[in-house]
């Protein structure tokens, strides 16, 4: 009954809860699909720098979107009682934090792996960064 302050009819509140639950469920199903795509890509791709793409699909599509869906489900699911606000707030905060930190972490890891030559570059077509470094400019990634 978190919409009581608007003084709506009872069935309007139930309808809003239902719409929230259906939207959240759709987001969680999209998240599970992206999770499988990321896992299969992480196994099948040949190289560390191509696996970064699959890992980011698994982090953003597989973690941020289902957390938003879980927040919507928790807001609309009435038998939770008062804990629905705690759940929705924590899920929303965690999704925002993950959306910022996943890209920063994978970028830092890729930069370190390129500069330390810790991962092989082997299935490669064109490396613009090495040409730029050979020209004597400051190393700038």
């Amino acid at each position: 009954m978190w919409l009581n302050t608007l003084r709506l009819e009872k069935w309007v509140i139930k309808l809003i809860d239902l719409i929230l639950i259906v939207l959240g469920l759709i987001l969680v199903i999209i998240g599970v699909f992206c999770d499988f795509v990321g896992a299969i890509g992480l196994i099948r791709l040949p190289n560390f720098f191509t696996r970064l793409h699959a890992a980011t699909v698994g982090a953003i599509g597989g973690a941020v979107i289902p957390m938003l869906g879980a927040a919507l489900i928790a807001l609309g699911y009435e038998p939770l009682g008062e804990t629905r606000f705690i759940l929705a707030g924590v899920a929303f905060t965690t999704s925002l934090i993950t959306m910022v930190l996943a890209q920063a972490g994978s970028h830092a890891l890729a930069r370190a792996a390129y500069r330390a030559r810790a991962a092989p570059l082997q299935p490669i077509i064109y490396d613009a960064l090495s040409e730029k470094n050979e020209k004597g400019e400051k190393q700038s990634i």
Binding site: G31, D35, G38, A39, L42, F48, R51, L52, A55, G58, A59, G62, A63, V64, P66, M67, A70, T94, T98, A102, G105, S106, L109, A110, A112, A113, A118, A119, P120
Partner: peptide, 19 residues
């Protein structure tokens, strides 16, 4: 095969574990 591969996989695994 290398350390960054393992760390990248643990990275995705951890975010999905949070979800």
């Amino acid at each position: 095969p290398t350390i960054p591969d393992r760390v990248l996989a643990i990275d995705s695994l951890g975010y999905d574990l949070a979800a």
